[in-house]
Amino acid sequence: MDLVPQLLFTGIGIGAVYALVALGFVLIFRATNVVNFAQGEFSMVAAFLMVVFAVDLGWPYWLSFLAALGGMAVLGALFNLGVYYPLRHRSYLPVIISTIGASILLANTTLALYGPQPQVLPGWFETQGILAGGVFFDSQYLLIIGVTAVLVAFQYWFFEHTLVGKKLQATSQDKEMASLLGIPVAGMIMLTFVYSAVLGGIAGILVAPVLFVSIGMGSTIALKAFAATIIGGFGDVTGAIVGGLALGVIETFGAAYISVPYKDALGFLVLVVFLVVRPQGLFGERVAEKA
């Protein structure tokens, strides 16, 4: 049997998760010029919230999903107020360290509240998937790919065709000019954190039925998403999507045809190659050209 279609489907499915988390990285980077190293923990917290609502409390899945995303929106706002806002006039370094601290805090708070045992979150669908043409299409991966496509389309519409989206773009391009034009910069940055937390949360909830819900799930995904962001071009939305999908496919095919134990190394080897040969990534611009 030809392995390629199965590997391609799985690679795109995993890549879509990386892409969703990478989108969160990119949006915050564009708005604040810092990397949020707690982006992965947003995914983990959302997955645990989903376990609390859907499994522990027995709420309907859709209601649990909305409640978890609501929780993530609140977390994003608090994160902005507690981690970014007090340091907004400092250089990027204290903010980055602050996000690393927040990442550790979120992981350990979840550990203290919920305990270390990995949890099972049922998938959205009853069926595990469908077999067609010798390829097993995992229903959860189908959902992940579909949701990613919808979110990318939504994001395009939002940023290009709505006033708020244009204000967000203006804020990310030049905060001072945006402020002079009457755009509420602080509010726009708040909105960016809220949206990024929700995006990370969606990724975490979608991938939880596949990878299980554990304290370490966020850092594992975030590391790959960070690599995807660099491959795609830091600060570029299209780059985040393409980088995420590319990394997922490279890893999966690399594991199948080169080495399973070194599949992560293959992904990071690609990252190193990009850093050396094309540090601005696939879609990024050279900093010198921006000036």
């Binding site: 199965q6 590997l7 799985t10 995993i14 596949v210 990878l211 370490g216 594992t220 995904i221 890893e251 999966t252 594991a255 199948a256 399973v260 134990p261 070194y262 599949k263 992560d264």
Partner: peptide
Amino acid sequence: ANQSQDFTP
């Protein structure tokens, strides 16, 4: 490798 996310291959 430990902590693999996918075993399809």
